[in-house]
């Protein structure tokens, strides 16, 4: 039995069941909050804390295993393939919302405006409504609003995210060349850029809600705008947290030029989030 070649199969995994309990508490608490059940937020909070505990524990265990050399090339390959398909599943999640945006802009709004097979709809139900984008629909749901411009904050955000991609790649070069300072400095830059991005997004939302009367309830424009940018912002936040973990691990001296899957996975994720933003910038803000 040569443990040299053995595929690492961990035993006695306690984190998954803790994760399941956390997930259920979190979702149940949140559902109950939506139903206005009193003090449900406590359950949500507990669930969230359990999830955080699970992540610290689970990832901590994996990091320890990795540092103790339990993983070899075959495990590494599993992680890589797994991460790629996880990112693909995220792509499909965003595809649902981009698909909705596409359908709304190309079908439902024009039909309501009397285009093609919608002529009768427009004549008998929404007389006088003209298709345009952005719109809050023939019912003018949410009242008067203003469009979110593309060339202010969003353009700056595009630059921020694009440069964060560059700084991350620069950090990666540092890691490969075993230049630890370049690695750490590059990561710090990337995290800072990410945080600034999220901050500016928050600023933009506050501008939308307070100055433009652009809310989630502003018809389909508000719905698609906040849903797409919101889920993207959430992913940036998660990515920034992942990067921060990588930063801490780098400072602690983890990773070698040959073996640093966690760093790479985080980088893939970050680039994916970057690409989604480009889609958003073009289809949500610009066109």
């Amino acid at each position: 039995m040569s443990s040299e070649n053995a595929y690492y199969v961990p035993h006695d995994a306690k984190w998954p069941i803790i994760g399941s309990i956390g997930l259920m508490l979190f979702f149940c608490g949140f559902s109950a909050q939506l139903n206005n059940t009193p003090s449900a937020s406590i359950v949500t909070m507990i669930g969230f804390l359990v999830l955080v505990y699970m992540m610290f524990g689970w990832f901590g265990e994996v990091i320890d295993e990795s540092e103790s050399g339990a993983y070899k090339s075959s495990e590494d390959a599993s992680f890589r393939v797994g991460m790629i398909w996880f990112i693909f599943s995220e792509v499909m999640f965003f595809a649902a919302f981009f698909g909705a945006l596409f359908y709304i802009r190309n079908f439902s709004v024009p039909w309501l405006g009397g285009d093609g097979s919608g002529a009768i709809t427009n004549e008998y139900i929404w007389n006088g409504f003209e298709a345009m984008w952005p719109t809050n629909g023939p019912g003018e749901v949410g009242g008067q609003y203003e469009k979110m411009g593309a060339w202010g904050l969003p353009a700056i955000n595009t630059l921020l995210l694009l440069s964060s991609g560059v700084t991350l790649t620069w950090a990666h070069w540092g890691l490969i060349a075993n230049k630890r300072k370049q690695l750490i400095f590059g990561l710090i830059l990337t995290v800072v850029l990410g945080i600034v991005f999220v901050g500016l997004q928050a600023l933009e939302y506050s501008h939308g809600y307070h100055d433009l009367n652009l809310t989630m309830g502003t018809g389909v424009y508000g719905s698609t705008f906040y849903m797409l940018t919101g889920f993207h912002g959430f992913h940036v936040t998660v990515g920034a947290i992942m990067l921060t973990v990588m930063l801490v691990r780098s400072i602690k001296g983890h990773f070698t030029p040959e073996n640093h899957f966690a760093f790479e996975a985080t980088a893939w994720y970050w680039h994916f989030v970057d690409v989604v933003w480009l889609g958003l910038f073009v289809f949500v803000y610009w066109l």
Binding site: L34, S89, S108, N136, G137, G219
Partner: peptide
């Protein structure tokens, strides 16, 4: 994930005022 997206839109349509599936707001 596409199903996840779809049911998320249901959730926001009911609780967060979005109008993905309501003609009055431009949805369908």
């Amino acid at each position: 994930p596409v199903l996840a997206g779809a049911v998320t839109m249901l959730l926001t349509d009911r609780f967060f005022d979005t109008t993905f599936f309501s003609a009055a707001g431009g949805g369908d």
